[in-house]
């Protein structure tokens, strides 16, 4: 296959993938970034660029979306731990950043606000564990593979994160259960 044909094929596949899955990646990034939409968009853009640069690997993956979610998680953790990045300090209250962002029509604003505050108070890796385990329904072993840590670490991070969320969300609604 000639170079220009290869390039066209890559571009076509990339656009189709982005069209189908960008919204999913943005939702995941919004959770990882605790509602910081600008940060989430940065993470998604960086992830998509990396995916394009290594497109043959994406193409070969059993599930390109799972591959993309894994890349997204890595980009988020890399970004979150950069010494010169101080996004958290620019936000007085995590919920404030979302104040201008319209919520879904049927969303509970109080629940959303409490969830944002709860997520923002977790460390980046704990947040990633919660998102992978309870939003994407990955099992402990798969979560450990994505994060490059042991299953024991995932279990302990998950337990601590859930206890934290229980405290935050339980104050909002005692009938709300988190486990």
């Amino acid at each position: 296959m000639r170079d220009d044909e290869r390039s066209t094929r890559r571009a076509t596949e990339f656009v189709a993938f982005t069209h189908a899955h960008r919204a999913d990646l943005v939702r995941t990034a919004a959770l990882l970034c605790a509602g910081d939409e600008a940060f989430a968009e940065d993470v998604v853009q960086t992830t998509l660029t990396r995916l394009y640069l290594s497109w043959p690997r994406v193409r070969r993956a059993d599930s390109p979306l799972a591959y993309a979610r894994r890349s997204l998680t890595h980009v988020f953790i890399d970004e979150a731990r950069r010494a010169h990045r101080r996004r958290e300090t620019t936000m007085a209250e995590p919920a404030d950043a979302l104040g201008t962002e319209p919520a879904a029509a049927d969303a509970d604003p109080a629940l959303r606000e409490a969830m944002l505050a709860a997520l923002a108070s977790l460390g980046p890796r704990q947040r990633a564990v919660v998102v992978l385990r309870h939003w994407h329904d990955l099992d402990v072993a798969e979560t450990a593979r994505v994060l490059g840590c042991s299953t024991g670490t995932v279990k302990s991070q998950n337990a601590r994160a859930l206890a934290h969320l229980r405290t935050h969300l339980g104050a909002l609604d005692p009938t709300l259960e988190v486990s």
Partner: peptide, 16 residues
Amino acid sequence: TDDLKRALGSVADAER
């Protein structure tokens, strides 16, 4: 589990 997923969904499913 549904409760937690609903709470996460309240953040993830914002209109964009």
